[in-house]
Nucleic acid binder design. Structure first.
Lengths: 342, 342
DNA sequence: TTGAAAGCGCTAACAT
DNA sequence: ATGTTAGCGCTTTCAA
């Protein structure tokens, strides 16, 4: 035995283990990958040697041979300063955790806004990752089609909007259900004039969230006319929309498409010395740290990102299995976190 | 030429390019890694072939040969719900961006709280990453020593507390300077009774931040007695500390060791129908999304995470160069973001 | 300036 | 049940 764990300059290889255990390299490989093939005593001997040397298969060599890196690529979109949108943080963490349990690591790459596909292309052509998790699936986003054309494997977090023939696995959140929960909650608390502050019409997610509000209002026979506003997803837009609605429609509660907009409402309440939850109810969307920490606490719709990550990894495993298996898309239900603001 | 880009089942290799360009594989390799060695016309021909095939070197093969993965490992600590601490988000993004520009990708792994070193060990022994970025460098943290013992390369984000003989590269933020900025800003606005809400004494970063407050107060001849509180880093602790200080010491302003604690102060102000920035000034630390979006905006100390990432990548490049170069630690200065709360 | 040979560490296919 | 052979795609010698 020529090397001891801890003082080696180069990590032990299959050959080192084989020599120590008195078997061939292939047997060691089998001990790692197909233990059933070995006789019990041989297996034990090899495992002891592996243990003793602290052997772990070299990833590069294994990848080269098996054409699989066990790496998942994730494009990190730019952080939006001045908003409450920190969903990515929670999602990335859950993904890393679940992927890790399945034997995969997450490889981050930069979201070059000029050419978002460049990062994908780079990793794809250098065969650096086995698959991607794609998070921005707005309508007309070329990524899905593009990846498909390059025969790249990927799971989308977001349904294939308006693309009925898409065949890739996806996971999404039923956010209409989320705003319906929020609206129904407010109705149950006695509110009848409940306003909606959402995103511009070209956002499909925005329209979906809005539909939950509409549905809840209609099902209880409440009017929606003049109670809705569609704006940019910024604090200031929310603030102005809230001010206008308060003046023109006299709502007693607001349901917002995001916590960022909900914070906008809070600004207007602050300006007018009104108190959220006492004078006017406010519900946000995303259960951000902002909603969790601001007084008196913003009631908010929480996306089950942990569950989403777990479904995505499940889909990933199916995709990368042989034979590959693609199940139906998974639609997850959000929950309402009730706090002081309602 | 047997394959066209876009319809290949397997990406092109050196051999494909060599055949197309009518040179040997070695010449193609040189064209990629040592272009100076080629005659201009050969180089042009090879580059044309590379372009035509969309060739990119296979990462696994290159890693196997060069013993370098061009991957940087980063342990993702668990997300803290209910706090305003989302620093990691911004930092990770900056790191991915800067590392990408230097030809490195960031590989995330899970922060198993039971055995935080397991993740490092795994990646290290499988030679999956070239180096780590270590972000949790509290006193007595075994990671630095442990990594050093395994001859692992790493750059620490955080100075080597109480470890004078540490020889690893590090980058840190002078957070005493941050709270000094915050305190001086309040003094300049006419405040004299400025309270401190910080972390427990066993947090070295906490004590450092506190020292900035002390220094600013003393240099202007202001008393600090009875004006400081040391608590857990939670919203509720901040809330209770603020209530107690308000009752016992009558401060007109608060400087907090975190935005989480500053939100605690806001809760107490809310309870007492006081307004931040009008009745009582509040300054937080970290310039979180919470500070940015909550009314009336929380003045907060912003850590230069983009710069930190850039310094870390610079250190990483030195570390991984041959011969390896380790410069002195870099101490960065934070800035104060002034908002409505002061 | 270019090419040929060897081998990084591993596993698939085959032979024993 | 175990060993032998070959080769994944690349770069580091070394030779021409």
């Amino acid at each position: 035995m020529s090397r001891l764990p801890g003082r080696m300059s180069t990590p032990p290889t299959l050959a080192d283990v084989a020599e120590l255990a008195g078997v061939s390299r292939q047997t060691v490989s089998n001990a790692v990958n197909n233990p059933d093939l070995l006789r019990a005593d041989t297996l034990a001997r090899v495992q002891a040697a592996i243990e003793q040397l602290g052997y772990q298969p070299n990833r590069a060599a294994r990848s080269l041979r098996t054409r699989a890196s066990h790496l998942i690529g994730l494009r990190l979109p730019p952080v939006q300063e001045g908003t409450a949108n920190a969903l990515m943080d929670r999602f990335v963490h859950s993904l890393v955790e679940t992927a890790g349990a399945a034997g995969y690591h997450v490889l981050l790459f930069d979201g070059d806004s000029a050419d978002p596909l460049a990062g994908y292309d780079d990793l794809l052509r250098s065969t650096a990752v086995d698959a991607f998790v794609v998070t921005d699936t707005y309508l007309g986003n070329p990524q899905a089609q593009w990846l498909h054309a390059r025969r790249a494997q990927f799971v989308a977090f977001g349904r294939p909007w308006g693309n009925a023939e898409a065949r890739h696995p996806w996971v999404d959140i039923d956010s209409a259900h989320g705003s319906e929960l929020a609206t129904t909650h407010l109705i149950d608390r006695g509110h009848t004039r409940i306003a909606w502050i959402g995103w511009r019409k070209d956002s499909l997610v925005g329209e979906e969230r809005r539909s939950g509000w509409t549905r809840a209002m209609r099902s209880r026979g409440l009017a929606t006319t003049g109670l809705a506003s569609r704006v940019e997803d910024t604090v200031n837009s929310g603030r102005m929309a809230a001010a206008a609605l308060l003046d023109e429609a006299r709502p007693t509660a607001f349901v917002c498409a995001s916590d960022t907009l909900a914070m906008g409402v809070l600004h207007t309440l602050y300006d007018r010395r009104l108190r959220a939850g006492e004078d006017i109810a406010v519900v946000g969307f995303d259960d951000s740290q902002v909603a969790q920490t601001v007084p008196p606490g913003i009631t908010s719709v929480r996306q089950p990102l942990e569950e989403a990550a777990s479904e995505i990894v499940k889909a990933l495993e199916g995709l990368l299995a042989t034979p590959s298996y693609v199940g139906p898309g998974a639609m997850l239900k959000p929950a309402l976190m009730v706090r002081g603001s309602s």
